[in-house]
């Protein structure tokens, strides 16, 4: 068997192995590349940056654990930016497990870095309601028709920041992070567009082509996949890098002191010393990985960029073997394959 035949009939497990290496090596060696923020992403940044303090912002997190690796970076960065602008945050989700995504993001970003944010006063989690775009249509006219309690079970009327919120029209901006249906498209069609509300957001790279038709008239700006998140991270770092870094450090510091306090209450002697040393070690680790923790998008773009290059390489080799094969085939007469394989006649036999 000639080399080109070997490449042509490549076992697809070999392709899988190549991709696995292309993705895992940059993760292991923490490779990241510089990014330039494109206009579409910059518009998201500018919109959020123009929000006055106290603006009501609806943060819709419509994704699940499966798409978390792709969407969490942008969710974190959007939340950081909104909190830096001191907006009032109304979390909502149309995905059942979106509730967990919201709580995780609050726990990992808002609470440690923005200690001044108080639940019910500065942010609230409205939680999940089933009904997809139906939910948007209802809240567009009347929030209380569907939401009698927030996601944590507290009656709506007892929550200070919900007292003057009757419907979607009370918001100044919708920020959506979505992995599919229902998501950004539905928020535009049934939420922002009918009431003339501004909307920005982000989605998975696969969904991005579907949103271009709405940009820039109905959708002010958006981010597609990790690439979009990386560009947002870049511009956020440029404008607020110092503040974000300071808040991260302060958050870690206060985590360490609470942790030590807790340990002192439950352990004594040598065991206490050992546990405190462990906590300090963890603190140090987190401090060292500050950039990686704060700019997930930039770091997750590394594996994606390398994987893109590998796929391009695969396409090139695929085509080279295809041309060699075709030249050789022309010399021989080949019987035509069965009808159902017609479309794949040139492909490798797998």
């Amino acid at each position: 068997m000639r080399i080109y035949e070997k490449i042509r009939d490549i076992d697809r497990r070999l392709i899988f192995l190549l991709i696995a290496l292309a993705v895992s090596l940059p993760i292991i060696f923490q490779i990241s590349f510089p990014e330039i923020t494109t206009p579409m992403v910059k518009k998201v940044f500018d919109q959020i940056d123009s929000m006055p303090a106290g603006s009501k912002v609806l943060l819709a997190f419509d994704y699940d654990p499966a798409s978390e690796p792709e969407l969490q970076p942008m969710a974190n960065s959007l939340l950081r930016h909104l909190a830096l602008r001191r907006c009032k945050l109304y979390f909502i989700t149309l995905w059942p497990v979106g509730q967990n995504m919201i709580e995780d993001t609050i726990k990992n970003v808002l609470l440690p870095e923005f200690g001044e944010y108080t639940y019910g006063v500065d942010y609230v989690n409205l939680g999940f309601k089933s009904g997809n775009e139906g939910v948007i249509k209802v809240v567009q006219t009347n929030l209380r028709k569907l939401y009698t309690t927030d996601g944590r079970g507290t009656a709506i009327d007892k929550i200070q920041m919900l007292k003057d919120v009757k419907s979607l029209a009370s918001m100044a901006l919708i920020v959506n992070v979505s992995a599919g249906y229902p998501g950004l498209k539905e928020w535009i069609q049934y939420g922002s567009d009918p009431v003339g509300l501004a909307i920005v957001g982000g989605c998975t790279a696969v969904q991005a082509p579907l949103l271009y038709p709405y940009y820039p008239n109905q959708l002010i700006g958006f981010m597609g996949g990790i690439k979009g998140a990386a560009e947002y991270d870049e511009i956020l770092r440029k404008n607020y890098g110092d503040q974000i870094s300071q808040r991260y450090k302060n958050g870690l510091q206060s985590w360490l002191s609470t942790e030590v306090g807790k340990l002192r209450a439950s352990y004594t002697g040598e065991q206490l010393q050992q546990r405190i040393a462990e906590a300090q070690e963890k603190y140090k680790q987190k401090l060292d990985s500050e950039k990686k923790e704060l700019y997930l998008g930039l770091f997750r773009m590394g594996p994606q960029a390398i994987a893109h290059l590998v796929i391009m390489l695969l396409i090139v080799t695929g085509n080279v073997t295809f041309f060699i094969d075709r030249r050789r085939r022309k010399k021989k007469t080949v019987s035509s394959p069965p009808a159902f394989l017609r479309k794949q006649e040139a492909g490798p036999s797998e």
Partner: peptide
């Protein structure tokens, strides 16, 4: 006080 809107805005819908 019922709401704040960003600079450049010229319309507000009070739906309550």
């Amino acid at each position: 006080p019922i709401d704040v809107v960003p600079a450049g805005t010229t319309e507000y819908k009070d739906s309550s």
